[in-house]
Computed example of a mutant assay.
Amino acid sequence: MRIAETVTFGGAGYDRAAALRGDAAALLPGARVLPLWRGKPLCAGPEALGWVPPDSPVLAAASEPVFLGRVEGQALFASDTSTWSPEAGAAGVEQGFLDTSEQRHPALPDPYAYRELRAVMAALTPLDAELAATAKALLHWHRSHGFCAACGAATDMAQGGWQRVCPACGASHFPRTDPVVIMLITRGNSVLVGRNGNWPEGMYSLLAGFVEPGETVEAAVRREVLEEAGIRVGAVRYLASQPWPFPASLMLGCAGEALSEEITLDPDELQDALWVSREEMVAVMAGQHPRLKPARRGAIAHFLIANWLADRLD
C-alpha cells in the first residue's frame, strides 16, 4: 500500500539516535523533555506536544528520563510524572471509553495540560504523533517491567531507557511490542465489521486480534475471523501497520477475502458483527448513518476503511 505510512503514528522518520543511547545522560542539559502523567502526554494546546526544559518544576518528582532521539540536532527525552497529584477537585481518572479530562499543572500557563493521546492523536503532526507514541509505550514498559523475569530482582534502566539490566543475574531486558492483526474482510461489495460491548453505542470497527506464538500474520487473520465471526477467509495480503501505544501493540493491517457469508458470533469476543455495503459505509464514515458509527479517526481501522472506499489499497 503506497500511502501506508500516512496512518496516524505511521512515522515521520525522526532520528532515534540509537548510537547515542549509551551516553544519553550527557545529552540531557539543553534537551527538551516531554512529561507524561498516567500515560497522558503534556500538550501545549490540542494540536501540539508540551515540551519543557529538564529543570522544569513539572519534572520535580518525575522518573528518570528516557531518550527518544533527536530532531534537528535537539535531544528529546520523555519522563513519567505520574506521582504528581492534581489539585483537589481536578478530574484525574479515566472516564469510560475515552478520558476527556485534562490535568493542568500549576507551574504551567494555559493551554498546557495533560491530555489523553486518543483524544489528540489525529490533530498532532506526524512528528509529534510518532514521538508521543514512542514515549507512551516506553514509559509504560518501564512501569510494568521493573523486575527481572529471570530471577525476580529489581532491574536498572540502561541505554537511555531502551534496556533494563538485572544487577543480580545480569539478564538484559528490552521493550516489547505485541503484534496484532486487524482485518479488512470483504465479500463482494461489503466489508465485515463488529463491535465490542464496551464501545460507545453504535460504534463498529474492523475485527482484530493478537498474533499467537508460532503463527504467521496470514494464519492469525484467518483464525481470528473464524473464531469471532465464524467466517472463513481465503487470500490474505498485508496493507499497512500502525504503532498503537495502548499500551504497546503494532497493528498489522491486512485485507482478506471471505469464503463464506453467514456470521456465527462468539459472544465472548463481540457483541455484534455484520456486513456493511460500500454504499452504506459511505454514510457511516460521514456520520450520517441512522444506527452505525465509524471507527475512531486516527485508528488504522478508520484509515483502512477510508482507503477501501477510495480504492487506494494498492
Results as ranks from 00 to 15, higher is better:
Y238A: 05
Y238R: 05
Y238L: 11
Y238H: 09
L239E: 01
L239R: 00
A240L: 03
S241D: 09
S241A: 07
Q242D: 06
Q242M: 10
Q242P: 07
P243Q: 08
P243K: 03
P243D: 10
P243T: 05
P243V: 05
W244I: 07
P245H: 03
P245Y: 03
F246Y: 09
F246I: 07
F246W: 04
F246A: 06
P247E: 09
A248I: 02
S249D: 08
S249I: 07
L250M: 09
L250P: 00
L250C: 09
L250R: 06
L250H: 03
L250E: 04
M251L: 12
M251P: 01
M251D: 02
M251I: 10
L252G: 01
L252C: 05
L252N: 00
G253H: 02
C254I: 03
C254A: 11
A255D: 05
A255T: 08
A255F: 02
G256V: 09
G256Q: 07
G256L: 11
E257Q: 15
E257F: 10
E257G: 10
A258V: 11
A258D: 09
A258N: 14
A258W: 06
S260Q: 14
S260Y: 12
S260E: 14
S260N: 13
S260F: 12
E261F: 12
E261A: 14
E261D: 12
E261N: 14
E261Q: 15
E262S: 15
T264C: 11
L265N: 02
L265E: 01
L265P: 01
L265G: 04
D266K: 02
D266T: 02
D266Y: 01
D266I: 01
P267K: 00
P267Y: 00
P267M: 00
D268A: 04
E269S: 04
E269F: 00
E269Y: 00
L270M: 11
L270F: 06
L270E: 03
Q271M: 13
Q271N: 10
D272G: 05
D272V: 06
L274F: 08
W275K: 11
V276S: 10
V276G: 07
V276R: 06
S277I: 14
S277V: 14
S277T: 13
S277G: 15
R278F: 15
R278A: 15
R278D: 13
E279V: 11
E279C: 11
M281F: 12
M281V: 10
V282M: 15
V282A: 13
V282R: 15
A283M: 08
A283R: 08
V284E: 07
V284Y: 04
V284D: 05
V284W: 02
M285Y: 12
M285Q: 15
M285V: 13
M285W: 11
M285N: 12
M285G: 09
